[in-house]
Design a protein around this nucleic acid. Structure first.
Lengths: 191, 191
DNA sequence: TCAATTTCTTAATATATCTTATTTTTTTAA
DNA sequence: TTAAAAAAATAAGATATATTAAGAAATTGA
């Protein structure tokens, strides 16, 4: 199991002894997925949090009208799950689907709870992870509320150039909350 | 200083000894504010996180065009700050203004850092706080992307009835990302 | 390599939401 | 209590974005 990336992800915020590292790694499971596979489907129970070793994932919600809203993308070195449903043991509100072939490490809710008990310093790690996620979402909310579609698009490609290059335009449109046709139109008008 | 509410807020997630409670309370400062006062102004440095003992606050961003976007409301028993700028010691992106006369307890970034050192269990508390904040924001993003204005309005008054009753309609419109005129129109059409 | 599928673009029309202006209602402060 | 200020409602016209449909381009899978 490839473990160097996840360890360096964690050790940027907390220090772990070799024993602790070993304990942590033993709680993980590796999973490999090919394009279009679903890591999680809306309505299913969401029992794991995933760390991306390689590849690209997309989390999206389909509403009653069938409209697709992209919640987030995850690339190498990112964590992803339906956090609300994971934490509260509820059926997932989102799908997580593979955009580019993935290798992920998964940690179950039970194992995460064990981890908090055994190595309380992981509370600090996930505090920082949650802080960052919250701040990202809040900034996105501000931009969704205050910027027109073209500017949101420009901010997106500026902030996530590697993602913008790797995913379909219609998926970016879904992240921005506009139709692919409209994204196409404003891109064309831009020049 | 009124301390029972903040202690019960914290002790719903972690246990503190009397000594720890005392230590924590000594890091806080009380502040009382009247309507329309600013707890924080856009561009200022954001050095504190605030716990609301009573009253109502509104955090909002004003963009280049002067458009007002409400980031969040905070009522009794809520925490509020510009989290991104607080954590990263950056000029605030939001204003925090008093909607109804407030009593707040403030904790500085320096004191929070001390607190993490002295009582590491506070990492767990703020982890849970950040988890909840992140999940709330993410749900809001999904709704912003997938629901029309009327349904977002209905969700808002269902989720926060006490806030909906206490703040101006134009502030709710600003939270929903629509103009007050349009909110007025869809409310009228509803019947 | 090639047929099939998916994605992207374009354009016409439709709809949601905004802007501006005015009037009515509510709240505030002296 | 009342005048002033702020908020809310209404409505007409403007704009951003959606919908539908079709064709072009790119990608996929056999």
């Amino acid at each position: 199991m490839k473990s160097d990336l996840i360890l360096s992800n964690i050790c940027q915020y907390i220090s772990l002894s070799p024993v602790e590292k070993e304990y942590f790694l033993n709680l993980l499971e590796e999973e490999n997925l090919s394009k279009k596979e679903f890591l999680l489907s809306q309505g299913e129970s969401c029992n794991h949090i995933y760390f991306v070793n390689s590849g690209i994932l997309r989390a999206f919600h389909i509403n009653q009208d069938g409209k697709d809203a992209t919640v987030m993308f995850a690339v190498k070195d990112w964590w992803i799950t339906d956090m609300y449903c994971f934490l509260n043991v509820l059926p997932s509100m989102v799908n997580i689907q593979v955009v580019a072939p993935c290798s992920v490490l998964k940690l179950s809710k039970n194992n995460l709870d064990k981890l908090y008990d055994e190595i309380p310093m992981f509370n600090k790690f996930f505090r920082i992870l949650m802080q960052n996620a919250y701040c990202r979402e809040q900034l996105r909310t501000i931009q969704n509320l205050s910027l027109p579609a073209l500017e949101r698009y420009e901010q997106f490609i500026k902030k996530y150039p590697h993602i913008a290059n790797a995913v379909a335009l219609k998926q970016i449109a879904s992240y921005l909350g506009i139709t692919p046709e409209f994204l196409s139109a404003i891109r064309a008008k831009k020049d």
